[in-house]
Design a binder for these strands. Structure first.
Lengths: 264, 264
DNA sequence: CGAGGTGTTGAGATTTGTCAACCTACGTGG
DNA sequence: CCACGTAGGTTGACAAATCTCAACACCTCG
């Protein structure tokens, strides 16, 4: 496992553990010292990658894009040409339904991939927007496919990225289909905490980059309900909420709430 | 596009159309006359597959499994060794949460793949159960990976299968997060109808292989609510419900209900 | 013919959504 | 430097939807 030396707090990328809440993308971004923005697949758990292929992957990363807050990486219907790996910043993906309603489909942190929604039809099914200043690596999809063709280990890794997305969405479906407001918010917070923690941030406090409305949309709740759950948990001494700054005072209680599905 | 000559009603596999509701797996099962259970990837939309590779894929399909109603194809935690393609019958996949609650994650029809949930961790995240007598092709995952390595067109196809699963789940999240009971059930029925229709069944009537409880679990509703929506739609002349036999009397109205998200 | 699984329907309880008011923080421009 | 406007957040009261609990009908299968 390699260590990040770029932006953000120092910390190592660790493989996710929880079955319910997945965290870091298996393939994590790394910065090769400071000399370049060279990248490669982190293949510790599936060794055998020849340095040559690292170079090849670097070559695929033709572009590094910087996005301002609110800027879209791509929109629904755009043809799939690039896959993106978040280098810094946080993203949201959202879908617009037929009747104009918009719903958040997910939030992406550094190391996670964006654009997989376009693989099926060749056109993106969702829109990806930066929630703050962000940087991504753009990986040419066709080129990636050619490279996967050559390197079995890479192919397997890419399958796992796709497979993870599938399992992740299933876990979210479970959340949306079977739990009430309290557990949903609790699960969301624990998920965020774990993903941020895996990136070297504090394990007891986090800064939400999205609005209550976006959280609610993601969780299938209204912004008012999200706000109320936050307030309730703050009253109970489980959270410390200051707008988007959230402190987790009682993680075990949060876990109980998330798992038990009881209570609000 | 090839035609089915095996069990079930005759009809051709057509590519799905709706953005909201995906149907047939892009790679469809086909029976090579009656002489053998040989199979191959149906690559009409992405031609270039050499007959040799068809043979290779046949060789991968080492086993054909028959399952009785209620029998499990695999369980949570089982190591991923095979991917399955449904040949006949219907399956459900479900997850058990920490507190013992069980939730249906999806229903699979002929031509669709089962087992993709195990690609990420190497162990299955859900359990797959036959809802009726069913037959599946078992495809050895490691062998498939080797084959994908050789044939670029196959690799692309496999990516699309995975990508479709991702988009599919996102559409379901949208359903669960933003719509009330009526639209959920309507969308479910339209989805089922389209998928069955693509397999050559009637476009106006369908036989549900699952209980109200399972439908409710899938849609994030209770079985009573599902039953009530069925009854209401029957009263309104939109459906004709006889237990699991459902006739779609007014598809446009069903579509309005599913899209508009208004009403019950 | 009885038992158990499944489906329907009703009444009441509970949760969440809706609407509205108000507050806070932040950025802009005078 | 301050006023102001806007976006975001909180809280309350009420309405609407779903869930829960319960009773009963239906059907299949032994």
């Amino acid at each position: 496992m390699r260590y990040r030396t770029d932006s953000g707090p120092p910390g190592k990328h660790s493989a996710p553990v929880s079955a319910q809440v997945q965290a870091t993308a298996f393939i994590a971004p790394t910065a090769r010292a400071e000399r370049s923005q060279g990248r490669w697949f982190d293949l510790d758990p599936a060794p055998g990658l020849h340095p040559l292929h690292q170079i090849r992957l670097d070559a695929l990363t033709c572009r590094t894009r910087n996005l301002a807050r609110g800027e879209a990486l791509y929109r629904c219907g755009d043809p799939l040409e690039w896959l993106f790996e978040v280098h810094s910043g946080m993203f949201k993906t959202h879908i617009a339904s037929a009747d104009g309603r918009v719903q958040v489909a997910g939030f992406q942190l550094s190391g996670e991939w964006i654009g997989l929604d376009g693989i099926d039809t060749g056109r993106h099914a969702v829109e990806a927007v930066a929630l703050e200043y962000a940087q991504v690596y753009a990986i040419h999809y066709a080129g990636l496919c050619r490279l996967l063709q050559e390197v079995a280990a890479l192919q397997r890794q890419f399958h796992r990225i796709l497979g993870r997305e599938i399992v992740r969405n299933q876990a979210l479906m479970m959340l949306l289909g079977g739990m009430c407001a309290g557990p949903r918010v609790a699960t969301f917070l624990l998920d965020m905490m774990q993903r941020l923690q895996a990136r070297g941030y504090s394990s007891t406090s986090l800064v939400l980059r999205m609005t209550r409305d976006e959280i609610g949309s993601y969780l299938g709740l209204t912004l008012e309900t999200v706000s109320r759950v936050f307030s309730r948990l703050a009253c109970d001494g489980v959270l410390e909420v200051k707008s988007r700054q959230v402190g987790l005072l009682d993680v075990p209680a949060l876990r109980r709430l998330a798992r038990g599905a009881e209570g609000v």
